[in-house]
Structures are given as structure tokens and as C-alpha cells.
Design a protein around this nucleic acid. Structure first.
Length: 306
DNA sequence: AAGGGACACAACCGCACCCAG
DNA sequence: CCTGGGTGCGGTTGTGTCCCT
């Protein structure tokens, strides 16, 4: 009882797949493709239900599957994305090429969850610290929630920001962006990004890079951590944000840079999401008391909807 | 050596959604 | 509009392996 409708046929095998079954499935899919999964078992000569075949292919046999341990970069990305979308493993997986939702889910349940729950490992999310600093981040978090909710609730799947191919930028705060003694670039980033009521979606319908143009940072860009994309690729040196203001105030001109815009264009990102990741590994006291691993979302928007 | 707990990973289950008829 | 098949997703369970006692 309780069997899925596609599995009601007699002689449906369950449990682990044998190498022979794998071979049959691989041979069939690679020669015929998988138009309709419910037809695959019969045509491939397998005593499985279509659903099982699909799962086996997607999570294990697909040629572009990436196996092996998660890299630290992948782990950071998973944690950050989980902070945004929660247990939406498919969304998270879409940002990690070659990784499956199942793999990420397993990895999270077996490892990251415990790691995050350890105050000594990531003091930034301990309960007392959360309580201490939560108010500082309410504006940005609420703003993000509004953006996410708006996009997810009003746009069909391929249009929303989490169905994009490579949309995310972040500051690489594992890198020493700020060499000034006794100062914290991230503190300043934090203050500026959080205080900015910087993004009003209705104002940016016609612009290609509104988030970048509206990012405001009052510090000398010399001390900005490098900007990296979702894959961990550092934005080329010549395209990194910099101060171009002629009055010496770097503010929003940080990102008004032709090279950066050209580089972003060349990457064909379908949307942008910039955040200051701030993992608590660098910087001053405020970093250690940040409420989440991803402390401040700067802004995001789906360029595919423009 | 044996037992059992922890862990990683594969696979299943139930549900929701989509869409053609 | 309704219905049923197909698909995708997230939660959960099952199973094999490793390690410690």
C-alpha cells in the first residue's frame, strides 16, 4: 500500500541498483534520451518504476555529476544560500554545477547543520549573539525577504532569481581586503549596505546593473575585499570596484566602472545578487556577533525580467 | 573478535504542481 | 473546469561502512 502510481506494476524491483541495472539505464538513456520516464523501464529492460530510474539517473548516473568531497567554497556557498532559501535543495543545487539536491541535502543533514550549531566553530550564530545584534540586520533581512517573496510569488520559475545560472556576487571576506590597522572594511561595508534603503525594484526596470550602481560604500575602495562571483571566480583586477569619484568620496561610484560592467556583461549573468558574506573569520567585534553566516544582503534583481 | 553507535550516502515516499486531454 | 498521468521536490528511511569499546 501507499505505492506511488507509477510503481504499481508487478515485479517492480526496489532497493540498491546493481551494476547491471546501471549499465542498462546508461545504455538506454545515452542512446534514446529520456522523453518519458514512465516508459524508460520497459524500454530499457529494467524491473523498476520510472521514478526510480529518473532518480538513479539524476542523482548518480548522469555524466556531469561531480563526485567527491565538497570544497570549502562550495560549503560556504551552501551555507549562504541556505540562509536565503532554507531547505530548497534544488535551488541551492542549481548554483553548484554537478552537485545534486540530494547530495547537498545529505551533506547538510550530516555535516553542515552540526557545524553551524557549534558556537565555537561559528560564533556568529550563537543564540546570545543573535539576540545581541539581530536588530542591526532587520532592515536588510526584511528587505531581502520582501524581494525574495516578491520574486518567488509573482514570477514563474525560470524568471525568478533562483533559477538563474550564475547570479551571485559576494565579497571575498576570507581575503584581507582591509589592511588598515584597527579598522574593518567589513564593518563599514556592513554599515553602508544595511543603512541604505538602496533598492527599489520599481526604479530599476530599465537598467542593466542597478544593484551595482546603487551600491553605496563610503570607504576607500582600496580596502574593499575582492568581488567574486558565485563560482568563486574573482572579478578581474581591472574590473574590480574602485573609487572613481573626482571629489575623493568613493561612495556609490565604487561600482560605476565600465570594465566591471563589461565584464559582467561578458559573463551573461541573468541576475545579480551581491552580498557581503562576512563569515566571522575576519574583522572586528561586529563580525563575531553577526546573526547569520551571510550577514548583509545588498540587493538582488532578476535581469531576465527587465 | 564481536557488538553497537555514528556516519555517509542511496533510495524511497508522499505531496504538489503542471499540463494535456 | 475537471481529471489523471508525469514530473520535481523535500522529508524520511534504509543500508553499508567505519571506528571505538
Amino acid at each position: 500500500m501507499g505505492h506511488h502510481s507509477c510503481c504499481n506494476q508487478q515485479k517492480v524491483k526496489r532497493g540498491l541498483w546493481s551494476p547491471e541495472e546501471d549499465e542498462k539505464l546508461i545504455r538506454y538513456i545515452t542512446t534514446h534520451g529520456y522523453g518519458c520516464w514512465s516508459e524508460v523501464p520497459e524500454k530499457a529492460g529494467l524491473q523498476r518504476c520510472g521514478k526510480s530510474c529518473r532518480l538513479r539517473w539524476i542523482n548518480y548516473l548522469r555524466p556531469d555529476i561531480r563526485r567527491g568531497r565538497f570544497t570549502p567554497e562550495e560549503e560556504k556557498l551552501i551555507i549562504s544560500l541556505h540562509n536565503i532559501v532554507g531547505n530548497r535543495w534544488a535551488h541551492i543545487a542549481s548554483h553548484l554545477p554537478g552537485r545534486t539536491d540530494n547530495e547537498i541535502k545529505n551533506y547538510w543533514n550530516s555535516w553542515i547543520k552540526k557545524k553551524i550549531q557549534k558556537p565555537t566553530t561559528l560564533p556568529s550564530i550563537s543564540p546570545q549573539n543573535t539576540e545581541l545584534v539581530q536588530p542591526r540586520f532587520n532592515t536588510a533581512v526584511d528587505q531581502l525577504d520582501a524581494i525574495i517573496n516578491q520574486n518567488l510569488s509573482t514570477k514563474p520559475a525560470p524568471e525568478n532569481i533562483f533559477h538563474t545560472h550564475c547570479p551571485i556576487f559576494m565579497f571575498d571576506t576570507s581575503s584581507t581586503g582591509d589592511s588598515r590597522p584597527g579598522s574593518s572594511a567589513k564593518d563599514e561595508l556592513d554599515a553602508t549596505t544595511l543603512n541604505s534603503s538602496l533598492w527599489n525594484p520599481s526604479q530599476h526596470q530599465d537598467q542593466v546593473l542597478p544593484p551595482l550602481l546603487n551600491f553605496s560604500c563610503s570607504m576607500d575602495s582600496t580596502y574593499l575585499p575582492p568581488l567574486v562571483d558565485v563560482m568563486g571566480n574573482t572579478v578581474p583586477m581591472e574590473a574590480q570596484p574602485c573609487c572613481v569619484g573626482d571629489d575623493g568620496d568613493p561612495s556609490r561610484e565604487c561600482f560605476e566602472k565600465q570594465e566591471l560592467n563589461e565584464w559582467v556583461d561578458s559573463q551573461q549573468y541573468s541576475s545579480l545578487l551581491i552580498w557581503d558574506q562576512m563569515q566571522g573569520s575576519l574583522g572586528g567585534e561586529s563580525l563575531l556577533t553577526a546573526p547569520t553566516n551571510m550577514d548583509s544582503i545588498v540587493t538582488s534583481f532578476p535581469s531576465s525580467s527587465l
